[in-house]
Design a protein around this nucleic acid. Structure first.
Lengths: 189, 189
DNA sequence: CTGAAAAATTGAACCAGTTTAAGAAATGAC
DNA sequence: GTCATTTCTTAAACTGGTTCAATTTTTCAG
């Protein structure tokens, strides 16, 4: 759990008391590969901090296929902000891609924590700022590059990551079919 | 400027003193059509609240074409969070699409305001949460629908808005060429 | 009102990526 | 180990959308 404290400390100052307060409010949890943190139509109730492991956020599209819109790995928060905040049924699944460890911050507990440690409000603002900027960047890549370019760009940027996940998930995330990814890869040899 | 105060009040409680503090910290500004709030390679220095009008955020892609990644209209904040926070040269232009009125919140002043009114930290967190959720939603639409479907979806959702902007801007935002938009529209008649 | 610039249309040739379907390879549970 | 399931590959036919180039329409400054 120290990973989470360390992460928060990179953004705001925490007293020893703050640390203890935070630790008393969050729950450690192990999650097995393929287990879900959230399913479609459920209302999301927590923010999840990934201590170790990998998760994917996806929805089932009109053709009945899984479309991955987000990956979360070590030291990232993951949740459905829309469902969490507006108390609406989620459109997304959040599922462990590998055996993982997380810290769970329940919605209600989060509000309490904010009143005890107002600095956390700032921490989450900064986290969201980064996430939003990354999301804009992602839209930029989708428009700017062909599928093949996106694949090479992504595998240069995260060479270890593409070893960790099945190819069909990468294809889905990058916005094309597994067949097309196969085609790209076979070209290279 | 009361529009901004009203907007903030929808998210957090403000005392009369808070209102005055905020009003003393932000600057009213009129912006003419085609004027820029931000240019590529400049470092972004403020958050801009659109009191009235319309802005587009775009970049110049590898082919030298303008690619719009975002529109901002009445009652939305617009900025380049990445450049603003990390003090890096921006990749984006932010330009007025029509004569507009804005409230400017300078970066340094913003930090002062946060220390005077800590609740604003929460306000911006909530704003960002919405913006991030909308951005995820946008990625979902890009993957889920064809260009034609995106066009009809968008014009059903914002029928007045498509009257306000040139078609080539809409095409760029939706991720296809003006020629293709022409084709879609001619089909309909 | 007028001319120049900006925006929208049209059509033909083209290409990036999908679909479908079948087989091969890798993984994992017992 | 071995069988079932999951993942990956290959190839042909197809389609959504682009590119290029020429033309028309709209907008707007003087």
């Amino acid at each position: 759990m120290q990973r989470l404290i360390a992460h928060i400390s990179k953004f705001i100052e925490l007293t020893e008391e703050d640390r203890e307060t935070i630790l008393s409010c969050i729950q450690y949890q192990e999650v097995k590969k393929k287990d879900y943190l959230l399913r479609q139509d459920a209302i999301c109730n927590a923010n999840y901090f990934i201590l170790k492991g990998c998760f994917r956020q996806y929805y089932i599209n009109e053709k009945g296929l899984e479309q991955i819109i987000h990956f979360g790995i070590d030291n990232w928060w993951i949740t459905d902000y829309d469902s969490l905040e507006r108390r609406t049924p989620s459109e997304y699944y959040i599922q462990a891609v590998e055996n993982s460890e997380i810290a769970v911050l329940d919605k209600r507990v989060k509000e309490e924590l904010f009143s005890k440690i107002p600095g956390l409000e700032r921490y989450f603002r900064l986290i969201l700022q980064r996430a939003y900027a990354a999301s804009m960047q992602r839209i930029k890549y989708i428009y700017e590059f062909t599928g093949e370019e996106r694949y090479y760009h992504f595998s240069n940027l995260f060479p270890e990551f593409i070893q960790r996940i099945p190819q069909y998930m990468l294809a889905s995330y990058l916005g094309f079919t597994p067949e097309f990814l196969s085609k790209i890869r076979s070209k290279k040899i």
